[in-house]
Design a protein around this nucleic acid. Structure first.
Ligand code: FES
Ligand code: FES
Lengths: 144, 144
DNA sequence: TATAAACCCGACTAAAATAGTCAAGTATCT
DNA sequence: AGATACTTGACTATTTTAGTCGGGTTTATA
């Protein structure tokens, strides 16, 4: 079970964006440099974030991206959904009555994985971008 | 973020094993047939489970595997560790002071992923094989 | 004591997913 | 005009996963 770079980068980039989001749009170039993420890859990621209306783009010189909602209203789960970083624990199709092994009954562990999926998604439901930004600036202060 | 087949199969096979664990060892062949998991793959998995002393093997005809501990004492986390199904959310080495981007400081999201990892492992810490077996027989009863 | 069932183990491989790169745009500011 | 920056689709290398395969060894039992 591991988190992919795409999901990790999406969140990292948005935290960066949210911190500098005051007045001017933030360019991917800047995020790329600050966070050490490939610019080309960031573009792919932000395309999706824009399509899901998490960010807005500003084209041209001095352009970049700005948040499309308040940081408080952007939850981790929204970010992950936008970039297709799904939590997938069951093997079968949930709606189907068939199990993962093709049999007519759900497998011995189906319910366990379903519980797990909920458990993880709960975490993502609660965390907002605002939380992350705050968390970070607090840490910075307390570190000196 | 998804669960791999190896981890899923390991748990599935052990639940199966635990249910039939009364007197005689359970052969992988039987588990393979009941659960629809490749026998060769199961052998790989059980090799690891044995090395981590979760199961014991009985060689020869009529052989198979038996649990090496009480089902209550086998936690999901032990199973996952045994088959190397680690939960990995941070990118960096935790012990190192360096961040995932190679910089001298942990990245903006490090703490978040660390929290997530704990959140997930908590779930695995709590669930025992016994829970899973019970869960399953209850379901069976209440369904029929 | 031959045979078959079952575990033991290392090496190999096909397929899928991931993590990018690349190329060719379009819009906007100065 | 030129530079900056977003837009988009296609392509590719690498890694991981999910097995397969082949050749063992051990042991019950006919
Ligand atoms: S995971 Fe749903 S039936 Fe096995
Ligand atoms: S995940 Fe640990 S520093 Fe980025």
């Amino acid at each position: 079970m591991k988190l992919t770079s795409k999901g990790r980068y999406a969140v990292m980039a948005l935290v960066d964006l949210a911190r500098f989001n005051n007045i001017n749009p933030v360019s991917l170039r800047d995020i790329s440099l600050r966070q050490g993420i490939s610019l080309d890859y960031l573009e792919q990621i932000f395309l999706k974030l824009r399509k899901k209306e998490i960010v807005q783009s500003v084209r041209g010189t001095q352009g970049g991206y700005i948040l499309n909602k308040k940081a408080k209203e952007i939850k981790l789960i929204n970010i992950f959904e936008a970039v297709d970083e799904k939590v997938k624990t069951v093997q079968c199709k949930k709606e189907s009555k068939k199990g993962c092994n093709g049999k007519a009954v759900k497998c011995l562990t189906h319910n366990l994985w379903d519980e797990l999926e909920n458990h993880i998604n709960n975490f993502f439901d609660k965390k907002s971008l605002e939380d992350l930004v705050k968390d970070n600036s607090e840490r910075r202060v307390s570190n000196g």
